[in-house]
Design a protein around this nucleic acid. Structure first.
Length: 256
DNA sequence: ATGGCAATGTTTCATTGA
């Protein structure tokens, strides 16, 4: 079973890359973030034509998450946290594919350390942990993936000195992300690739990609039963090349 | 063997992203 996560930076502007990518790589599941489209305008037909069924949770202009499945319809789709809190920002959807509970998440960026949005980011990560406590079981097959907008340590940062303490690299957000993992998840890509310099996002500006000035902020976090099945993981840098790419690359895991 | 921001809508600039 092959599962991928990809911040596509607008599904409508990225169809010309996403559909060929699905056809080439044939993942069983693709989680997307920043689809940037309200549900009634989602390009469902184009994704279905590639052989996938989709569960999505979107809004106009910002955010938006989706789960695509090659195993038929996504089962028990659950958009938002449904915890009585504010679900007006479309940043989370869960669904089951082939017995694996899949969660596609787009964590708030935070803007700058200390900003109101930064506090919202920390709160959002706390809310995700509470969601897992209330709605999932770490002894079952669970994949929590997406764009987390947090680097985990210096290996995920092209210039750790320049980024030290900045948004995406600061200790409070790394601690908040660790609390999510402490629920019972491991970083599936990192399990098989301990070396530094492997990134999932590069700034469009200043030759970010050619100079490999990137960050690793996109993850597939998996429960122990999924970890036991893990055989391969990769980041598809090719998807960051060529015509009008997303600024993020897909991260892929393969399970036995 | 990549390429010097991009997407959206409030549209010809402002806002946001990371």
């Amino acid at each position: 079973m092959k599962i991928a996560t990809w911040n596509v930076n607008s599904i409508r502007s990225r169809l010309h890359r996403v559909v060929p990518w699905l056809e080439e790589h044939q993942p069983d599941v693709l989680c997307m973030q920043e689809t940037k489209v309200q549900d009634d305008k989602f390009p469902t037909a184009e994704i279905e034509a590639a052989g996938y069924e989709i569960a999505f949770h979107g809004q106009k202009t910002y955010n938006g998450v989706a789960i695509c499945s090659r195993y038929g319809a996504v089962e028990d789709p659950a958009p938002g946290f449904g915890d009585g809190g504010d679900d007006s920002q479309a940043r989370f959807i869960a669904g089951t594919v082939s017995g694996v509970r899949i969660m596609s998440a787009y964590i708030p960026n935070g803007k700058t350390v200390g900003h109101e949005d930064y506090r919202f980011k920390l709160e959002w990560l706390g809310r995700l942990r509470r969601y897992l406590d209330a709605n999932a079981d770490p002894t079952q097959q669970v994949v929590v993936c997406g764009d987390f907008n947090v680097t985990r340590d210096d290996r995920d940062v092209h210039d750790p000195q320049a980024w030290e303490g900045e948004n995406l690299c600061s200790e409070p957000e790394r601690t908040a992300l660790r609390a999510v993992l402490d629920w019972g998840l491991v970083d599936a890509f990192r399990e098989l690739h301990p070396e530094p310099g492997l990134y999932s996002w590069w700034d469009y500006r200043m030759l970010g990609f050619p100079k490999n000035r990137g960050l690793r902020i996109d993850y597939l976090f998996v429960s122990a039963p999924v970890r036991e099945r893990l055989v391969r993981s990769s980041i598809d840098r090719n998807a960051r090349k060529g015509m009008k790419p997303s600024d993020h690359a897909p991260v892929v895991i393969e399970l036995e």
